[in-house]
Amino acid sequence: MEIIMIILAGILVAAAVYLILSRSLLRVIIGTSVLTHAVNLLLLSMGGLKTGAIPIYGETVKRYVDPIPQALILTAIVISFAITAFFLVLAFRSYKELGTDNLAEMRGVPDDEQ
């Protein structure tokens, strides 16, 4: 089961890298959120995918799944959500201000003129 998850995470990382390398800003943002999905998936499968009950205490349960990666992922999801929201607003603002979403046209720092 871990192998399938790792291959899936690999595919997601590949897709994310492809998207991040494109010129359109929106594709780049989609790429970053795909990348965080891949990382969270990997975090889950690195903790081990053995069968067990959900980590809520019950009298009769013998085996639980590892609760730590779930807590870590919960934190990572919220953080990446906040950053994606910020990034999207920034993209919107820069589209209004600069009139383009092509990253190749965004040359901010002036070169030295001789």
């Binding site: 910020f86 990034f87 993209a91 600069l98 965004m106």
Partner: peptide
């Protein structure tokens, strides 16, 4: 600032 912070955040 808009242009450079896009790259920085990315």
């Amino acid at each position: 600032q808009l242009q450079e912070s896009i790259k920085y955040i990315l």
